[in-house]
Design a protein around this nucleic acid. Sequence first.
DNA 1: TATATTTGTAAGTGATTACTCACTAATATG
DNA 2: CATATTAGTGAGTAATCACTTACAAATATA
Lengths: 173, 173
Amino acid sequence: MTVKQEKILQSALQLFALEGYHATSTSKVAKQAGVSEGLIFKHYTSKEGLLNAVVEEGEKRFKNLYAEIVLEDKPRQVIKKTLELPFIVPEEEYGFWKLQFKLKWELKDYNTQKMQPMMFALSNAFKNLEYDNPELEAELVLHILDGVASAILKDMVTDKEELRNFILTKYKL
Amino acid sequence: MTVKQEKILQSALQLFALEGYHATSTSKVAKQAGVSEGLIFKHYTSKEGLLNAVVEEGEKRFKNLYAEIVLEDKPRQVIKKTLELPFIVPEEEYGFWKLQFKLKWELKDYNTQKMQPMMFALSNAFKNLEYDNPELEAELVLHILDGVASAILKDMVTDKEELRNFILTKYKL
DNA sequence: TATATTTGTAAGTGATTACTCACTAATATG
DNA sequence: CATATTAGTGAGTAATCACTTACAAATATA
C-alpha cells in the first residue's frame, strides 16, 4: 500500500464518518487526500469499492476487540466484556465506529448479521449461568450495547466511567 | 393543504425513510407524487424545507405518544410506559420512526435534545421510587429504549410481544 | 363578473456527480 | 540496461443534482 493509498483511505474514512457516505463526493475525498480523483478509481474501481476498502481496513483493526469476547470462556466474563465494549473502544477508532452506525442506517443492505457471534457467545454464557431465558437475556444485552454505544458516539454521555460502573453494578459483574 | 401537497409529503416521507435524505432526489419525489418538480419548490422552497415539513407533520402525529409518558404522574407507570413505547408505536408510523433514526445519523445537527422531557420525567420517577442513582437509571432506560427501537426498526426482533414481557418482568413493572 | 392570488407545469439553469481516458512518471523485474 | 508493470495525473464525459423562470389553469375575493 502506497502512502497515497493510505491517504485516500484515511480521508475517505474521515469524510464518510463525518458527513456520511452519500453526502461525500469522490472529488472531496481526492482533494482532502491530496491526490487526483482518477487515482481513487484506479485503486478502488468505484466509490462503493472505496467504501468497502475503508470498512475492511477498519474491521481488521476492530477484530481483536470482538475476539476477546467471543473467545472468553468464563460466562460472567463474556457478559462483562460485552457490556464494557463501548467503554474500551479507543477514541481514535470513534471515526470508524461512527461510520458503522451511519452505514447501518444509510445503506439498505448493510450487514446486520455482524453481531451473530457475540449473540451466540452471550446466550451460551447466560445458559451456563442457568438463567431462565438465556436467548432473551443475550438479546437485551446487545440492545443495551447498541443504545449505549450510540449515545457515546453522539456525545450524549458526559461521564463514561460513571455509566460503565453503574451498568456493571446493576448486572452484578 | 391540497391533495398534491399531501401526495408530496407522503412520497417524500416514504423515500426519505427508505433510501435516506441525501440519496433521494427532488425529481424522484416529484415523480412518485405525480407532480411537477417545480411544485415542490413552490410549496417548500428547498429540499431542506420539504424535509422540515415532513418531520413537522410526523411529529404532530407522534406528539400524543410522548405526552402520555410525560404527563403520567405514577412513577412506576412512567417507567413502564417508556419501556413499552417501542412496542406500541403503530406500524403505519414505522416509516416516520425510521426516518428519525436515519436523520440522527445522516444530519450533523439533527436535534438530539428531543429526549429531554422524557429524561426529566424518568429521573423524577426513579427519584420518587428512591433509587440510589435516579439520573443514571433514567439514562440507562433511554439507552435501552434506543437499542430496542433500533432493533425493531431493523427487523431484528422476531417476537416483539415476548421481548416486551421480558423487559417489563426484568424491571418488575 | 372582474381581478387578484394561488396552484400547477414544462423547460430550462449552472453546478456537481461518479467515472473514463490518454498520457506521463516511477518502480519493479528480467 | 531494457522493458513491463504499476502509480499517478488532468482534462475530459454524460447524467443528475437542486433550483428557477415564464407562463397557464384554477380558485378566491371584490
